[in-house]
Amino acid sequence: MAELEEVLREVARKVLGLPEEPLPSRPWRQLPPDFKTLSPPPLPKGPPGKGVGAPPRPSEEGGLGPASAEQEPLRKLRECERKFQRKAKEVEKLEVKLQRAQKAVQEAERDRGRALEEAAHWRKEASRFAAERDRLGAEMARVQEAYAKLRADWAELEKEVEVYKRSIDALEARLRELEGVAEQKAHLEAELARLRNFKEALPEPFPQEALLRVLVLDYPGLGNRPEERVLALIEGYRALLKGEDHPALRHSNRELLAGEPEGMVLLGLERLLLDLASLPLSRWLRTHAFRLEAWLQAGEQPSSPRLREE
């Protein structure tokens, strides 16, 4: 408010045309509060027929009349009042601008305070993030060290696994070899047991080396019923002539023969004769269907290299 009063004093001094520094003999007095509302003193009434606002008539000496001389200060006072009102309006505008500027300064101060608070908050967050970064860096270094150690251990384990794989492959190969030997041994033992059975079943003067040249067939082992044994004997003999395999030939020494057998020995001949006697083969041979089938198969008669018809 002191600055505003100083501005008002300066404006009044310039409007009234007062000097910059007041004279000591005539000190400057402050204007009354109702200076803006003061009205000029009433003008003296002139003679009839002359208006107040009529222009002054020049005197005989060429100057203004006494009425014009009295109104000159009033005119200047009105002009000063108008100037003062304009200056007062300008001062009001300046006050409004000053208030706006002060308000803007206050808002800027508040924004600055908030900015400082946010800056302090973010500095604190940055410090926390830096500490977290350092902690994570140390943790990452520890994890990388552990990972490098695991990679080294993994490489060692891979080498050991390769060694174990080679050992397992060698053991599996040896196992397959032993399994083959075991199977071969079991097969040879079965063949040896079969040869022993054949040897025991054959008469005593029968030479043992003949078992490797003569086909020996165990007829009683071909089945449980007579028709099964007879059919197995016939089908097995046909397969032998064609060079094919048949379940009936598993009851013989065919696998021990080096080539074509030089002869055939049938164990259980009496069982075969008994089976033929118990079966109605004579009636089958006399039927028309059997003869017709024999006639139709006349072109596919089996032949034996040991028996040749003259």
Rank of each mutant, 00 (worst) to 15 (best):
L281T: 06
P19L: 01
P73A: 09
R26I: 03
S167A: 13
E209F: 08
L77R: 02
S252Q: 03
V52L: 15
E10F: 08
A108D: 05
L296P: 00
E162D: 14
Y219K: 00
R29W: 08
W284D: 05
G49W: 05
L222C: 02
Q99W: 01
P207V: 02
G223M: 03
R86Q: 15
R176V: 03
R196T: 11
E79F: 04
R286M: 06
V11S: 11
K185M: 11
S167L: 10
L8H: 04
E260I: 01
E160Q: 15
R166E: 14
V105E: 13
L38I: 12
G221P: 00
R114K: 12
R29T: 12
T37A: 14
K149W: 09
P22I: 01
E92H: 01
E158W: 03
K149Q: 15
E189Q: 15
A146Y: 03
L31W: 01
A141S: 10
A289Q: 15
P41C: 04
A2P: 04
C80M: 13
E95P: 00
L74D: 07
E162G: 13
L241D: 06
R229P: 00
P56M: 05
T287L: 10
G51T: 10
K50D: 06
R100E: 09
E260C: 07
A155N: 09
E95M: 05
A294D: 13
F129M: 09
Q184E: 15
R135M: 04
L38Y: 01
E191V: 09
L136I: 03
E61T: 08
G268Q: 04
E228W: 00
E255S: 13
D245T: 09
Q297M: 12
E235A: 11
A115I: 03
E21N: 03
G137M: 05
R213Y: 05
R225K: 14
E162H: 12
L222H: 00
A155S: 11
A298P: 00
L74P: 03
P280F: 14
A126F: 11
E227M: 07
G63L: 12
Q106T: 07
V11H: 11
S278M: 04
R142I: 00
L272M: 14
L273E: 11
L281E: 01
E262C: 03
R110M: 04
L178V: 07
R271V: 02
R13V: 00
A130Y: 10
L38G: 02
L292S: 14
G65P: 04
P55W: 06
L296M: 07
L43C: 06
D245K: 02
S59K: 15
P203F: 05
E70Y: 14
H187P: 00
R135C: 05
K242A: 15
K97E: 13
G53S: 11
R82T: 11
E310N: 08
E158Y: 01
G62S: 07
N224K: 10
E177G: 14
E235L: 14
M1D: 08
L215A: 01
N224G: 10
S25M: 07
E81I: 03
E60D: 09
L157F: 08
E118V: 05
Q106G: 05
